[in-house]
Design a protein around this nucleic acid. Structure first.
Length: 478
RNA sequence: UCCCUAGUAGCUCAGUUGGUUAGAGCGGCGGACUGUUAAUCCGUAGGUCGUAGGUUCAAGUCCUACCUGGGGAGCCA
């Protein structure tokens, strides 16, 4: 008999049909005559209720079935006598693949803290919460490829190992095959990277953008989607040492086109989640509502699905940096001295400022544009005012900056001048500058932090809970 | 990296101004139960109180250092 996924059984199974299912036990309940096994195979948040007659299978066999025991079950699909489900499987044959000793198996049929499950990240997929999160994560990855493919973008694989460290996006992880103890040294006493694998210092990438621009200025529209690495000692709910980033880069796009794309893209993904992941979203939403009950009324946030619909259905606010500074200066917290950091044209906005703009003032996603050039990267297009660059940051409630992007400086002379001002060695970037020397065009792009976006869609609070195997300072377990 | 906070049973926690034998719920185990919904009822086992020092007649409780977790900040996606 062909095995069916539980999702298929629940969606299309017919009463009276003989079916074979395989999965892991979530819970088992029982009385003298009959046992109920909630079986899950990962295909859906929902379990299939297995009814096992005690007399038929014997207490010996049923005793071996505990939480997380793996089973194959054949039986007849019947209308459920209980009220919790429409159909259930009347077992005629049970095969145990692997037992799970209930005294040693750490995931109990009860509510666990996310911290505890994080320490058991190898088994947390077996919980309803994490299976929901990772199904949604998959769906979003798939939707990203679908969105760009349908729009004629090409998926470009930029390198993981890179020799360029010019962008200054953060501390990098060195990639080396030199011995850690007594590496070969030069006459000056420095490590002699000429003897290293690549013959020069190399690192894990912090961004595929610069290589992405090479692709975009020939293929037209490209995107990257891959792992990115930052060796910053960041210990927050929003940072990882290894995370995934989506970086589209488009020839002939100016800043407004870039904003339009970012907004359409995010809304497409949210719509995709609402269309394809509703069961998982409902589960996560209920979970959140349970937690919200304990909070005072004014601290409760919008229900998850409502929040997603709200973002999908409303225009993002577009606001210049200069306007944002004015808004902040006229704000209540500013006038009452509630901000910890000063507000002045030229400063980088602190998260307290961003949160005020997004959560209090506008109360919807905000795209901030035209930042002072001194707080942004060298490659951003210099505006005519001589003070600002064509940068854009998309800010989301709770999460903060979810997208950072810009129109790029396409003028060779301006770009080189800016690199000199910022002490970026132009000779090492010769390959990047060639895009401006030969057939340069206006172009733009942005980077979306994948995990930050998944935080938003799932409503989870800690970025370590939306990536399968989080890499953070002092933690590379599993 | 900085600030705050926590570490007691498998999990979530309580443990009074330092004072006898460290408790509960859940989970586990044993039993009961005519179909349960993270079942219910009865019973039962389970602890080097994060680690190392120190103060004291006496430390889970006070002090110091370190380790680990959580929250916030910075950096950023």
């Amino acid at each position: 008999m062909k095995r069916l996924k539980i999702k298929e059984v629940l969606a299309g199974g017919q009463v009276g049909q003989q079916v074979l299912v395989k999965g892991w036990v979530r819970t088992k309940r029982g009385s003298k005559n009959v046992n109920f096994i909630a079986l899950n195979d990962g295909s859906t948040i929902h379990n299939l209720q297995i009814v096992a007659d005690v007399e038929k299978f014997g207490e010996e066999l049923l005793k071996e079935i505990n939480t997380s025991t793996s089973l194959a079950i054949t039986g007849e699909l019947v209308e459920s006598q209980g009220s919790g489900q429409a159909v259930e499987l009347n077992a005629s044959d049970i095969i145990i693949y692997g037992k799970a000793d209930p005294e040693k198996y750490p995931i109990q049929p009860k509510k666990h803290s996310l911290e505890f499950l994080r320490e058991n990240a190898h088994l947390r997929f077996r919980t309803a919460t994490f299976s929901a999160v990772f199904r949604i994560r998959h769906a979003m990855a798939f939707a990203i490829h679908k969105y760009f493919n349908d729009k004629g973008f090409y998926y470009l694989h930029t390198p993981i190992i890179t020799a360029s460290d010019a962008e200054g996006a953060g501390q990098m992880f060195r990639v080396s095959t030199l011995p850690a103890v007594n590496p070969p040294s030069t006459e000056e006493g420095d490590v002699d990277f000429a003897q290293d694998f690549f013959g020069r210092p190399t690192n894990l990438t912090v961004s595929g953008q610069l290589e992405g621009e090479l692709g975009a200025t020939a293929l037209g529209e490209i995107y990257t989607f891959g792992p990115t690495f930052r060796a910053e000692n960041s210990n927050t709910t929003r940072h990882l040492a290894e995370f995934w980033m989506i970086e589209p880069e488009m020839a002939f796009y100016e800043l407004t086109d870039n904003m339009d794309l970012a907004e359409e893209f995010l809304k497409y993904l949210i719509e995709y989640a609402l269309e394809n992941c509703l069961d998982d979203l409902k589960f996560l939403s209920n979970r959140l509502q349970q937690e919200e009950k304990d909070k005072p009324a004014d601290q409760r946030s919008m229900e998850l699905i409502e929040k997603l619909q709200f973002v999908r259905d409303n225009d993002f606010v577009r606001c210049t940096y200069t306007e944002a500074i004015d808004i902040l200066k006229n704000s209540k917290p500013y006038k009452k001295g509630k901000f910890q950091f000063p507000v002045e044209w030229g400063i980088d906005l602190q998260s307290e400022h961003e949160r005020y703009l997004v959560e209090k003032h506008f109360q919807k996603p905000v795209i901030l544009i035209n930042y002072p050039k001194d707080i942004k990267a060298f490659y951003m297009k210099q505006n005519d005012d001589g003070k600002t660059v064509a940068a854009m940051d998309v800010l989301f409630p709770q999460i903060g900056e979810i997208i950072g992007g810009s129109q790029r400086e396409e003028n060779y002379d301006k770009l080189v001048a800016r690199m000199e001002e910022m002490d970026i060695p132009a000779e090492e970037m010769w390959w990047y500058l060639d895009t401006r020397r030969f057939g340069t065009v206006p172009h733009a792009g942005f980077g979306l932090g994948f995990e930050r976006f998944i935080l938003f869609v799932t409503g989870m609070g800690n970025i370590r809970d939306v990536i399968a195997f989080p890499r953070t300072p002092k933690n590379a377990e599993f």
